[in-house]
């Protein structure tokens, strides 16, 4: 109920503005589920990640608001730009953040929507992954280049099951918009038991998309010194890290909307539970190599998603 009441309240108190134009888009973009809500959820997800990971390792872990403190701290530090790097070094994190911030505006919890916004979501999320690679290549360091090339390889690998499972869901819901898919689930039940293979394929690409074990080879800290992140510092690193944290929330929420939607508060709870599951999977896995992940995504997950697509089309 709450997302739909606010626009009414604002209209009553700011009656002149409400007469002149529609405030709903501004609220959707800036507050819920736009900038403010997404930022809060991103920091919450990141804080949960560090705390749960620590507790599972018999440690205490930082307080839940630590990612917020880290962001503020990074903004105050000097951001060094290597000599060999280009203009894209600064713009890659900014474009990455902008692209992931677009996606929550289209969520069916009081956001805007239009037909076909699912396709926009897929492409916009790809932009943020490519920006990771671009940041790595533009940093002028061989470690960054190796990280960037690995990111592109992995993107190429998990694109196939991602696209196929999303198309399967869209065909099942007879709509290419998130609101339409949510509506189809409210009417006919959650998709995860109707399209189980597509669900498994989609969930398996999530660690690769957000940079968690077992598929976080592009950002491997111990091996290639952080890959694309190696030369970033100060505000550029703050923006890049924040973009990653927003990606945690956005990709998990996308999984919930596509396969587990019932209504908005169950969306939040399932999001948290799914995030806990992925933290757990990260904790118990080592990092697999690029060629091994390629085989996994193309052969196994691709075929799995294809099975469901065929099932739903027939």
């Amino acid at each position: 109920m709450f997302p739909y009441r606010w626009p009414v309240l604002i209209r009553v108190s700011a009656v002149r503005i409400g007469d002149l134009m529609d405030v709903q888009p501004f609220i959707s973009v800036l507050i819920v589920p736009g900038l403010l809500f997404t930022s809060v959820m991103a920091f919450l997800y990141a804080g949960m990640y560090r705390k749960v990971r620590a507790r599972m390792q018999n440690r205490r872990g930082p307080p839940f608001v630590q990612p917020f403190y880290d962001f503020i701290k990074l903004l105050s530090k000097d951001s060094i730009k290597p000599e060999k790097s280009g203009m894209l070094f600064t713009w890659a994190p900014i474009i990455a953040l902008a692209s992931v911030l677009i996606v929550p505006i289209l969520f069916p919890i009081g956001g805007l929507s239009f037909a076909g916004d699912l396709i926009v979501v897929i492409y916009v999320l790809n932009v943020s992954a490519i920006m990771l690679a671009v940041g790595g290549f533009s940093s002028g360091s061989p470690f960054g280049a190796v990280g960037g090339s690995r990111e592109v390889t992995q993107l190429f690998a998990y694109e196939l099951p991602l696209a196929i499972s999303m198309v399967a869901v869209a065909v099942k819901a007879s709509s290419f918009s998130l609101v339409g898919i949510a509506g189809a689930q409210e009417a006919g039940g959650m998709f995860f038991y109707q399209l189980p293979f597509a669900c498994i394929a989609f969930l398996s690409i999530i660690p690769a998309k957000i940079g968690l074990q077992p598929f976080d080879i592009p950002e491997a800290e111990q091996e290639i010194l952080g890959g694309p992140f190696v030369e970033y510092s100060g505000y550029r690193l703050a923006i890049f890290t924040f973009a990653n944290q927003v990606k945690y929330f956005v990709v998990i929420s996308l999984a919930v909307i596509l396969f587990f939607w019932r209504n908005w508060w169950q969306f939040l709870i399932t999001g948290f539970l799914l995030w806990l599951l992925f933290i757990f999977v990260k904790i118990i896995s080592a990092r697999v190599k690029t060629d091994q992940s390629f085989v996994f995504f193309w052969q196994y997950m691709g075929i799995l998603a294809l099975v469901d697509l065929v099932r739903v089309v027939i």
Binding site: Q213, A220, Q222, E223
Partner: peptide
């Protein structure tokens, strides 16, 4: 060795 191949949890348990 566990930490280098990415499984930080085993690193924490072994050092405990």
């Amino acid at each position: 060795a566990a930490e280098i191949i990415g499984i930080e949890t085993l690193f924490m348990y072994i050092w405990k």
